[in-house]
Design a protein around this nucleic acid. Structure first.
Lengths: 187, 187
DNA sequence: GACGGTTTAGGACAATTGTCCTAGAATCTG
DNA sequence: CAGATTCTAGGACAATTGTCCTAAACCGTC
C-alpha cells in the first residue's frame, strides 16, 4: 500500500470498483477485501457510503482538472488540444469497451438512483465542456463555441456507450477517425 | 389491469421500473407493489429475477421490431425513414433527460454487472443498426452503410447520455437539428 | 355440488446490505 | 515509561434481498 493513508486507499479502491461494477453494486465488503481492512473500520474514515462516493467524485474532479491543465500546456495550438481530447478514446479503449466511460456511466447510474450527488458528478462533464469551449473560442468560434463543445462531448459519449454495448474496439477507431476529420474540416 | 394476464402485468411493470430505476435497483417488492400481487406469487410465473429480465428484453425486442417495420411502411423515402429515427429523440425527450436511453442504460448496467443477458440486450442495438444500414444501402452508400448506421446510432446515444447527465432538453433539440443537417447534406 | 388443475397469498429462509458500538492495538506526546 | 490520541478489528443490529414452501382461493368441468 506504500505510504498512502488508509483513507486514500479506500477512495482509490472505491474509485476503481465504482467504475468497474457500478456504485450500488459495490459493497463495503468488496472494498474492504481490496483494501484489506475490516468492514467496521470504514466508519472511522467516512460517515456513510455516500460520503465515499463524494470523496471519489472529488478525486476525479481534481484528477480531471489537472489533466486538462496539462493538456493546455502540452498542446501548442487549440486544434492540437482538442485532438488530445479525442485521443483519450484511443488511449482508454480497452477499459471503455469493457466498462464504458467512467463519467457517463456514473452519471447515468446516479440519475436512475435519483442520488443526491448527481449534480456533483455531472460537474465532471462541465469540466470538459468548459475546457473544450475555451479551445473553440480560441479558434474564433465565439458564438457557437459551447454548441461545438457539447457536440464533441456527445460524440465521445456515444462512442463509449456503443463500444461498450457491442464490445467493439474497431468501432472506436472508426469513429475517432471520423471525429478527427470533422475537427480538421471545421477549423 | 384490464384483461391482461398477470404475467403480462409483471413484465410491463418490470419494463418500466427497470428503465426508471435500473435492473438491480428494482426489487421484487417494488414490482409487486405496482402489480398488486404478493411477492411469493412471482415464482409461479418466473423462476428467477433474471427470467423477468429476459422477458422484458424479449418484449422490447418485439416492440422495436414492430416499430421499425412500421417506419418502413410510413416513410416513403429512405431519408424520411432515417429522419423518423432521429425524431425519437424529440418524441421521448422528457423521459430521455430523466432516465436516459432505455437501450443504452440497460446495456451499460448489464455490462457492469457482467450479466448473462448482456448479449441479448445489445441485440436491441443491432436491430437499429441493421435497419439503419438498410436505409443507407438504399441511398446508394453500399460500402460504408454500416459505418454510417453506427455513426448515427452513436450520435443519438451520446445525445441521450449527455441530456440525461445535464438534464437538458434544449441540448437535445440543438443536436437533433445538427443531425438533420448532417443527414440532408450527406445524401 | 364435488372435483382437479391453475393461480394466488403470505410467511419462512439464509444471505447480504449499510450502519453502529465497543474494546483493544498502535502511535504519538510529554 | 505513562498517558492521551488516533486508528483498527470484529461482532451486533435491523432491514432488505432473492428464493422457496405450503395452504388456501379460484375456476371451469362433470
Amino acid at each position: 500500500m506504500g505510504d498512502k493513508t488508509t483513507r486514500d486507499c479506500i477512495v482509490e479502491a472505491a474509485d476503481k470498483l465504482f467504475y468497474q461494477q457500478g456504485y450500488e453494486r459495490t459493497s463495503f465488503a468488496s472494498i474492504a477485501s481490496v483494501v484489506q481492512i475490516s468492514r467496521g473500520n470504514f466508519y472511522y474514515h467516512f460517515k456513510s457510503k455516500d460520503e465515499i462516493l463524494d470523496a471519489v467524485i472529488e478525486t476525479r474532479l481534481c484528477t480531471t482538472r489537472r489533466m486538462l491543465q496539462q493538456w493546455e500546456v502540452e498542446g501548442k495550438h487549440p486544434v492540437d488540444r482538442i485532438h488530445r481530447f479525442i485521443q483519450i478514446l484511443i488511449d482508454n479503449r480497452l477499459k471503455i469497451k469493457q466498462y464504458g466511460c467512467p463519467v457517463g456511466t456514473l452519471c447515468s447510474e446516479l440519475a436512475k438512483l435519483d442520488h443526491g450527488s448527481q449534480s456533483q458528478a455531472s460537474q465532471l462533464f462541465t469540466l470538459f465542456r468548459t475546457w473544450l469551449r475555451k479551445q473553440f473560442v480560441q479558434l474564433g468560434h465565439k458564438s457557437n463555441a459551447d454548441i461545438l463543445a457539447m457536440h464533441l462531448l456527445a460524440r465521445s459519449q456515444g462512442v463509449a456507450a456503443l463500444a461498450n454495448a457491442l464490445y467493439s474496439e474497431k468501432f472506436i477507431k472508426n469513429e475517432v477517425k471520423y471525429m478527427r476529420d470533422w475537427l480538421n474540416n471545421y477549423v
